[in-house]
Design a protein around this nucleic acid. Structure first.
Lengths: 201, 201
DNA sequence: AAAAAACTAACGGTCGTCCGTTTGTTTCTT
DNA sequence: AAGAAACAAACGGACGACCGTTAGTTTTTT
């Protein structure tokens, strides 16, 4: 076979474990999913997982990392696609949309992230918060740019604005339904809120 | 002692168990807290808890109920205090403020609710969702009133608006810090967003 | 003394983890 | 090219710790 890419077999299993575990974690939470559940999902025996991961904790840590790195990459790509001279508000909308799409449509890694981060062992959580901060800083820079340009209404706290917006988006996992509004539309509703508010002028 | 109220001793212990368990659940999640942890927190032996609750599940169910009922009562009271002729937007602000205060300052019941609802046994969760819907309907009625009066901007979906707002508030548990902005100010920032957006006109 | 409340001690079950073994492939030696 | 040695990957069973729960008994309250 003219197989262009020879991805090492071990790496493929590792990836399969990560994806299956992420889906289970997202559906049931960290403590509710046992290594036996994960092993069964990938048609392996429990002990074999330890060939690829040294503990349940290190497995979940890998999942958390893939989640935030993925979301950050998606947001960066969306902003990059706008070109270098794009307006800060348009860039913010691009981030909202990318975030919502990644969260609601794309992969299990991001949604597993939000769901299980509070349940994970404290040491793992604290180690991971640093990665989250990188994402927060990326978005914070865009909002700060709006603030420094004097485009925010008086009385608006840039940091709280960021937190409220991402809270609104992140919480949508718990009510999003595939038959309802799509991820892009949800992000649009949020950007309307930021741009003009919800009221008729 | 001239004790005006003879509150049954058992009822006091029951309340103590509920409060301690709610705090533990909020801090660590449902599965991460064992009945032994709860017993130790109230200086009892594990088996004694079964005199007051017939299972861990029924304990957590009582906590969930106290949380939503409390939040709903707080919101109803705040709206009631405005008087019967109050503007719908002012009533919405009152709900936001009451919700944020109850969530961030008041009791552990509300925050435990948000944290552990996704982790609780499915049967319990489904039974509880009906109570949550009562709260949602109460707020939904206010927003629908704005919509029917034609006061929402074109393109704004009332249901999504409600979800985004409460997502923003609920998510604040994860970043709220007592030294930062207070619950009332956070609610104010949100109502600014709804009223005028975040941008300078 | 009766009832309410808390205690002690155990049960069966599941969990994360570990470890000796097995199988198939790759690499080295000659 | 053939056989030996090393390695990668998964198996399968065991371990102790902890879980929710129960039963029988003792203490406290009224």
């Amino acid at each position: 076979m003219a197989d262009g890419e020879a991805l090492p077999k071990g790496e493929a299993t590792r990836r399969l474990i990560l994806e299956s575990a992420a889906r289970l974690f997202r559906e049931r939470g960290y403590a509710e999913v046992s290594l036996r559940d994960i092993a069964q999902a990938v048609s392996m025996k429990t002990g074999s997982l330890y060939y690829h991961f040294e503990s349940k904790e290190s497995l979940v840590e890998a999942i958390l990392t893939l989640g935030t790195q993925g979301a950050l990459a998606a947001s960066r790509a969306a902003v990059g696609a706008l070109g270098p001279g794009a307006d800060a508000l348009d860039r913010l909308q691009a981030v909202f949309t990318a975030h919502a799409r990644f969260l609601l449509e794309e992969e299990d890694f991001a949604s597993a992230n939000l769901k299980i981060l509070p349940q994970v062992p404290p040491a793992t959580r604290e180690r991971h918060v640093r990665q989250d901060r990188e994402y927060g800083d990326f978005v914070g820079a865009i909002i700060d740019e709006l603030a420094r340009a004097g485009r925010l209404a008086p009385g608006v706290d840039p940091t709280v604005l960021r937190m409220l917006c991402f809270g609104a988006l992140n919480w949508s996992i718990s009510w999003f339904h595939p038959k309802g509004l799509g991820a892009t539309q949800i992000a649009d509703q949020l950007i309307i809120l930021v741009r003009t508010g919800a009221l008729r002028p």
